[in-house]
Amino acid sequence: MDRLLLMTCFVRTVETGSFSAAGRDLGLGQPNVSRYVAALENHLQTRLLSRSTRKLALTPEGERYYTEARRILEAVDESESSLRENIAPSGLLRVACPTALAHTFLVPHLATFLERYPAVTLDLQINDRYVNLVDEGVELAIRIGHLEDSAMRVRRLAIFERVCVASKGYLAKRGIPNTPDDLREHDCLIYTLLSTGTTWRFRGADVPVSGRLRVSSPEAIRECVNAGLGIAQGPEWLYEEGLKNGNLQLLLRDYTAPPAPIQTIYMANRLLPKRAIVFMDFVAEIFANTEVFTPQGDIV
């Protein structure tokens, strides 16, 4: 029995969501993948997947085994790669990235990356929700803000200032806030996926804000603030165009919170394949050559 083949079929089934998709991905066909996963369950004497007519779901035992099996397969892959001289990065790389960062900084450079590494297939998952790297089979994630999970390792890409902005039209009607507490009397545009909820962070103070408009997209927040619908807080680079053309105005500059990091994260207990390492290097190169970010330094 080829134990690594059985593990591979199980891991790819979990990551693709079906025996059929795993079969296509591995070139084995759905019946073989289903048979190999069943053989693995028989060998382990435990059920790894709950099967229904609509979907597959991991059992608690399957969740534990998936984590270990994926780690083992990655270690084997990395060990084999290290024995080959001048091995080129190859294989499927899954990367999660927030929408604003992806569209502004990554997508314009993807052609260069794919041309530089023709044997790598990139699955760039662009969304603003929290992505669990283990459960969703993602090797790297680019995140904004401080890391609190000790199971992760980070590579810092850049730091940025989070600023308050409003259109000059809005300020002409509602007045200019002079302190963070003044925001309580204003319509603030609420980004619903912000980790601090409806609390905005300033130097020395966290201020609860409210407003009539709540949006789950940073780009939509940018459009709304440009349209004069309220005050927004976010990374300065997100509002760069409106600030340059004079439509937007920076607010509360004396109260700006300390810079926050943009980081690539990955599991601390995994050996990264070469495709992940070269992607991290490539992304670091992009941010190092981007002028809108503050030079790296201490972050509070």
Rank of each mutant, 00 (worst) to 15 (best):
F293E: 05
P31S: 06
V292E: 10
K173R: 12
E139T: 10
L58Q: 08
G297A: 14
V37E: 07
L6D: 08
E219D: 04
L189W: 06
A57I: 02
S90A: 15
N132W: 03
H103K: 09
L194K: 09
V14N: 05
L243F: 06
V107A: 05
E236N: 02
N226Y: 01
E291V: 14
P60E: 01
L83Y: 06
D128G: 03
N289V: 00
L101H: 10
D25Y: 12
L101E: 08
P218C: 03
I231Y: 10
A268E: 15
G211D: 05
T16H: 11
H146S: 05
G145P: 11
H186M: 13
G230F: 08
E139Q: 12
G137Y: 09
Y170G: 02
E285Y: 01
V207R: 15
K244F: 06
H43D: 08
N269T: 08
E219T: 01
Y255A: 09
F113I: 08
A260P: 00
A111Q: 14
N245V: 12
L114W: 05
R129I: 05
W200H: 13
T13D: 01
A88S: 14
P98Y: 09
F282N: 05
V163T: 09
L106D: 07
T104Y: 01
E241N: 10
T198Y: 02
A111H: 13
Y255E: 07
P218K: 05
N32F: 03
L140Y: 04
A257S: 09
E139S: 08
R155I: 02
R270G: 01
V207Y: 02
R212V: 00
N127P: 00
A75L: 06
A227E: 11
I265V: 15
S81R: 15
R270S: 10
E78R: 13
Q30T: 09
L243H: 04
K274C: 00
Q296D: 11
V95W: 02
T179Q: 11
M7H: 10
I142D: 03
A227M: 11
F293L: 00
A288V: 01
Q249V: 08
M152T: 06
L252T: 06
L49E: 04
L122I: 04
N269K: 10
A172Q: 15
L272T: 06
A205Y: 00
T67R: 14
R84A: 04
C164N: 08
L48F: 11
E61W: 07
S79Y: 12
Y239D: 05
I144A: 06
R35C: 00
R155S: 07
E219K: 03
T8K: 15
Y170T: 05
I87K: 14
D77V: 07
G234D: 04
Y117M: 07
S52N: 03
L251Q: 07
M1T: 11
H43T: 12
